[in-house]
Design a protein around this nucleic acid. Structure first.
Lengths: 233, 233
DNA sequence: TAGTGGTCTAGACCACGTA
DNA sequence: ACGTGGTCTAGACCACTAA
């Protein structure tokens, strides 16, 4: 064989997927129970369970006790986006990474930010540029909650980006992510070398440790940036 | 108890997560083997395996045979984006859904599109607007490969959007997805009720059935649209 | 209430990759 | 070579929920 043949539960997963794709089991169809499939495939029920559960996680099957397993009526595509460390991201593109701090201050959050960080106490404001081959790649505009992360006060962030320092220093349990298209602000545009109002891809993240906010960051990407991923395959 | 206590493998997952978050097991740390943990938690190794495997899937742990399981040095955030059917998406926002076909033709793909669909044969070109409460929500600009989906020729797409028709009719195995910020084109801007050049959130998808292309679609969202998701939590 | 998936167990063997 | 995770098994009991 030139192509690797999956074995075990992955082989079962592949066969079930084939039947779904081939419309042998069309959307909405209730497929045989785990025991029946185990008999058909000549394996233990647990093995069938493993395969079907994986497909259910991907949104291809819907499983309910007593009702059985059916092919999803709307096979909701579930795209998995890796949110990498910026330095790694740039390096993986084969480009030279550089980092430049452009602003550092302690300031009181405005109303909008106070709502995001759930505090009105002064927070640490960092602005920095991450460069790929010397060209601005992404702007990092970050607020760090000094109630949650007091150690940040003593960090200059001149050599080590807040992005990485936080990741290695501060625990977190949850991140809210928002992706959008924005017009480049008058403040940001020059740093990215473009005219204000131009479209820029923007990622906003709020990081939480349980119920306490850790940091809020806005990443503004240079034109041409696109997040790519795959569903299925 | 007011909060539900996880039991079984999820309880183990929660405890491991707690130790990671609390830095008892810092990034890079090699955690005890499955057998040790099974003894500690008083359960079977398979149960520990289930818990650790789930955490490895989320990118929190890295597992390698013989080398053991370690806490990821860069806990890459893995955001899961649900790509829903547009009609469902709008309804879930509590808005009234409406759909309007604005263009339908058969045309030869230009060079760029030919590369995407991997064919130079004529393809079906559909343009349509999906409205939420009567306001344009997203523009659908779609090319359907008539080699792969000849049945599309007889569909008017006046009442049923290509989005849904394809989902229920045509098998697929893989979708390439790209998210970006674009400037609204002179052609698209009026349909969204805004000036050309304004930033618009754009999703491009190419759908494949094995190696044959099915369709290529560009979704252009009205201003204010943002894709939201969560990591962890 | 009965049928289905969800999970656990104890043991076994295998595959991989580090040492 | 050997230790670790990856997987399978046969059986069992439980939890949910549709009928």
């Amino acid at each position: 064989m030139s192509t690797a043949q999956p074995a075990g539960w992955q082989a079962i997963q592949a066969e079930v997927l084939r039947r779904v794709h081939a419309r042998e089991w069309p959307p909405g169809h209730v497929i045989p129970g785990e025991i029946d499939l185990a008999v058909e495939f000549g394996c233990a029920r647990a093995t069938v369970n493993r395969a079907l559960q994986a497909l259910a996680d991907e949104g291809i099957l819907e499983r309910r006790r007593k009702a059985g397993t059916r092919v999803a009526k709307f096979p909701v595509g579930r795209a998995v986006l890796d949110i990498p460390v910026i330095r790694q991201d740039i390096k993986e593109r084969g480009l030279a990474y550089d980092y430049r701090l452009s602003h550092r201050s302690v300031a009181e959050p405005d109303v909008d930010l106070a709502a995001r960080l759930r505090t009105t106490k002064p927070a640490l404001h960092i602005r920095a540029v991450h460069l790929a081959d010397g060209i601005p790649f992404v702007l990092e505009d970050r607020w760090i909650n000094l109630q949650t992360v007091p150690q940040a006060k003593t960090q200059s962030f001149e050599d080590l980006s807040a992005n990485e320092w936080l990741l290695h220093t501060v625990p977190y349990t949850k991140i809210d992510v928002s992706l959008s298209a924005e017009a480049a602000s008058a403040e940001d545009a020059p740093l990215l070398g473009l005219a204000p109002g131009k479209p820029v891809f923007t990622i906003e993240r709020t990081t939480w440790d349980h119920v306490a906010s850790v940091t809020f960051v806005t990443l503004t990407y240079a034109p041409g940036f696109a997040l790519r991923t795959q569903i299925g395959g």
